[in-house]
Amino acid sequence: MAYSNKVLDHYQHPRNVGSLDKDAADVGTGIVGAPECGDVMKLQIKVDESGRIVDAKFKTYGCGSAIASSSLATEWLKGTTVDEAMAIRNTQIVEELSLPPVKIHCSVLAEDAIKAAIADYQSKQERLREAGAPES
């Protein structure tokens, strides 16, 4: 399989690898997988009071395209608002990394991970509001 230079770059120098505190109120964690290939992807965002994503981390066990897709996603996420992050589509990742058709599912996984991380963050905030505690 011939990987594009951008995929190879992210694969060899992945950006933002690591973990954030999954129990923190301002952190959202998305963990998704693709049983067809056994890939697992964890993507985390840290959001400030204004709804801006100030940090993003990922950890992916999978092929080069899955690693590159999640690495790229964390780069894009940093500095965007949660609303802007919701608008990120897998097709943008496919385009940026020149992913071949057989690897499109890797970009879908990254989009799913972004959405799962946002959903986790929002449900945490929702619970905080319901509990009457001040927003973090």
């Binding site: 997988g33 056994g38 697992v40 964890k42 066990y61 799962a116």
Partner: peptide, 20 residues
């Protein structure tokens, strides 16, 4: 049924880590 629970996937990630 391909979408599995976050709990299962967290375990799958630990397993992949252990193998690595």
């Amino acid at each position: 049924t391909a979408k599995l629970s976050p709990e299962f996937l967290a375990g799958a990630m630990e397993l992949a880590e252990a193998v690595a």
